[in-house]
Design a protein around this nucleic acid. Structure first.
Lengths: 232, 232
DNA sequence: GCTCTCTTCGTATCATCGATACGATATTGG
DNA sequence: CCAATATCGTATCGATGATACGAAGAGAGC
């Protein structure tokens, strides 16, 4: 059991120091003081080792950040999440490349966890009526843009000498997915306002996304929403 | 001369068919009917071959598009450039990964040319006073976000089943770098915000004003609203 | 304590890959 | 026709991912 951790830490160490962003199984085994067959018995193949290594680096980094999460305002958390994601990429470029670049066939667990954390923050915003797109779409937008910015910062430092574009892109995406300023209205008020906004603007849609029958039913349902009771 | 082109085309062919996204110099030489030393004499090393191959694929793709460029409205060109970039990634995923993922040490000429084309369009917009950020910043924002979206589409098809996020991120970035143009966007934004607000809060309604079937249909309709009513 | 079985270990080895040395062959200039 | 130069082709190197296979060790049952 301990040898597994020793191998992972040796791999993380070598990976962090590797100029090419790659490590050899021989090098890892030598550094960890084990032979190749034990590595392959514990991790299956090189991809398994790299995935475990990435997860380890990610967990270590996240451990320091986990305490500071879940502030009062989910928008702050959303911004902090983006900046934390970017900072991780700059702090551990090789691990980050393995995590998000198309090197590995299947995404490591760390990438999935990053997506989970992001989606959780977005759902908190959605519950407050502050998302203007479905949470899944917002998650995809934020994640893909963030990885693109982070990879650019890492792999083209001459073109991206500072993290200015990161903040600009971050705010551009957040502006696109968030409702302006509606933090103070309660969820029920926001819902009622949203329903009436839609009711007022449905007729003007061209091309019409609904049949007349659908439109009629939708209007009837929307009228029921403001009266619907307190969820929170 | 001709053997060089033959090698490049063989490499492009093998690269397009490669499930791993990689090719071996031996395979390329066999397919082109030459020996390894000639490859190394013509291209220096494998990276040189791959860079030349990426440039070849990019030129071929761009050749078909070059005629349709430089429309009257640079904003149309900006949108077309984003969509063309994304379409190239989907059409030639392996070449695209080599072009923008951190595999190659130095960016191939094709990547630089893509940046040049983008910056040229942005400078036309800037000349018309329609850019709200410096053209270099705008170029970095657009390029990094676009590569992030494209890489996500390529490498995580399960998470990104369609190009919807591409358009959303595109418009988010463009909105952030451009001065306001359309007048009807505000109404559409309000409508979209209202729809997603409702969508996010429907589940919490107690007592439930809708049957599960109604709820499902309503959600489906609400998801259609943000995309509806695009006039431009 | 002894043996039997099953797991772990360690050597040696395979196959593939990028890259090159070096003699053989062809081509070109005089 | 010859010599100088460039190209070719075999054979090979060094590194790497992955594994076969016998040796050594650890329990389980008697």
């Amino acid at each position: 059991m301990d040898t597994k951790q020793a191998i992972i830490e040796a791999a993380a160490e070598l990976l962090a120091r590797s100029p090419s962003g790659d490590v050899s199984t021989r090098g890892v085994c030598d550094a960890a003081g084990v032979q190749q067959p034990v590595l392959y018995r514990l991790f299956g193949d090189k991809e398994g080792l790299l995935a475990a290594t990435v997860d380890h680096v990610w967990d270590q980094y996240l451990g320091a950040k986990r305490v500071a999460e879940k502030s009062a305002d989910p928008l702050e958390d959303l911004r902090a999440g983006w900046d934390s994601h970017t900072a991780f990429a700059l702090a551990h470029p090789n691990a980050y490349k393995l995590m998000f670049a198309p090197t590995l066939r299947s995404a490591p667990e760390a990438a999935r966890e990053a997506m989970r954390i992001l989606r959780e923050v977005l759902e908190r915003l959605a519950a407050q009526g502050r998302l203007r797109v479905p949470a899944d779409d917002a998650a995809r937008m934020v994640m893909s843009a963030n990885t693109g910015v982070a990879l650019s910062l890492i792999t083209r430092p001459a073109l991206y000498p500072d993290a200015g574009p990161s903040t600009l892109v971050r705010d551009a995406i957040h502006h696109a997915i968030l409702v302006e300023g509606g933090a103070d209205t309660s969820a029920r008020d926001a819902r009622a306002a949203a329903a009436s906004t839609l009711l007022a603007s449905l007729d003007g849609l061209t091309p019409a996304p609904f049949t007349p029958a659908e439109s009629g039913l939708l209007e009837e349902w929307l009228e029921r929403i403001p009266a619907a009771g307190r969820s929170d």
